[in-house]
């Protein structure tokens, strides 16, 4: 199915149809999520009002992991199947994932200070998420580091795939090692450990973030496809100029 959308024009037509829905869902779900998160949900028996930070911290963390998985999948597709749009999808995803990771770290820190008593600890969960942030930055840096864009794509794709081992480490860090960060509350054996009145804003914000991701991803894909076309046009111009000067050189050579 993905090969059907190897054609950029066909992909852009689909993107044009989807984008308004993604935008609408982001606003509606985000608005509803914020209403429940800030107004229509109770304080926690243990953490009081700071539990409201969970409604933006957890969705950010979920998106950080989701985006990296998408990035790794796109890079694998580019390396193995040489799908023409896969590299562009990877480039478009990376900055979004980096932003969500930064938000997970920042909101987590603001939540940790009042609850744990510290802004930061080097436990397995926090350290591995910081590493994830560096992986995103590394991918973006490596991607643009080469004159030849294809070499940049390949090098950064390998980094992204190698770094994927970090994703299960992040997820299971709170189970494998003693950490300050608490274990999972939603996706765990025995069902969620969150009261429904709090699960509602959490899930609304999670889906709002997902819709936002699709919205921004489609925008960035359009930009990446344009950039690809611009490179192609410029390359043709350079070749045309070289051909003309070669002809001119040959003509001059004969005249001499």
């Amino acid at each position: 199915m993905i090969h059907r959308f190897a054609n950029p024009t066909r992909f852009l037509r689909l993107a044009d149809r989807i984008q308004p829905w993604a935008a609408g869902l982001t606003v509606v779900l985000g608005g509803a999520g914020l209403y429940f998160a800030l107004f229509s949900s109770p304080a926690d028996y243990q953490q009081g009002e700071t539990v409201r930070i969970m409604y933006i911290h957890v969705p950010s963390a979920w998106m950080a992991l989701f985006c990296y998985t998408a990035l790794a999948a796109a890079c694998a597709t580019a390396l193995i199947w040489k799908h023409p749009l896969a590299d562009l999808a990877a480039r478009a995803t990376a900055p979004i994932g980096a932003c969500f990771t930064l938000l997970a770290l920042a909101t987590g820190s603001l939540w940790g200070k009042p609850m744990w008593g510290t802004w930061w600890v080097w436990d397995a969960r926090l350290t591995s998420v910081l590493i994830l942030f560096f992986l995103y930055l590394g991918y973006m840096a490596l991607n643009g580091a080469f004159d030849d864009p294809e070499r940049g794509q390949k090098a950064s794709a390998i980094l992204a795939l190698v770094g994927f081992i970090n994703v299960p480490i992040i997820k299971f860090s709170v189970d494998w090692w003693n950490t300050l960060h608490q274990p999972a509350s939603v996706i765990k054996m025995g069902g969620p450990a969150i009261h429904p009145s709090m699960l509602t804003p959490l899930l609304l914000m999670a889906f709002a973030f997902k819709a936002y991701f699709v919205w921004v991803l489609l925008m960035r894909m359009r930009g990446e496809i344009n950039a690809m076309k611009i490179r192609a046009v410029r390359l043709r111009q350079v070749h045309a100029a070289e051909a003309t000067s070669a002809d001119a050189g040959a003509a001059t050579g004969e005249a001499r």
Partner: peptide, 27 residues
């Protein structure tokens, strides 16, 4: 703690959206 947390989320997500829009328009 709570308001700066919500603030930074709004700032970063709005900023990313704006930067992406500029990227598309420029290209």
């Amino acid at each position: 703690y709570i308001w700066p947390a919500y603030g930074i989320v709004a700032l970063v997500l709005a900023g990313l959206w704006l930067a992406s829009r500029r990227f598309v328009r420029a290209s």
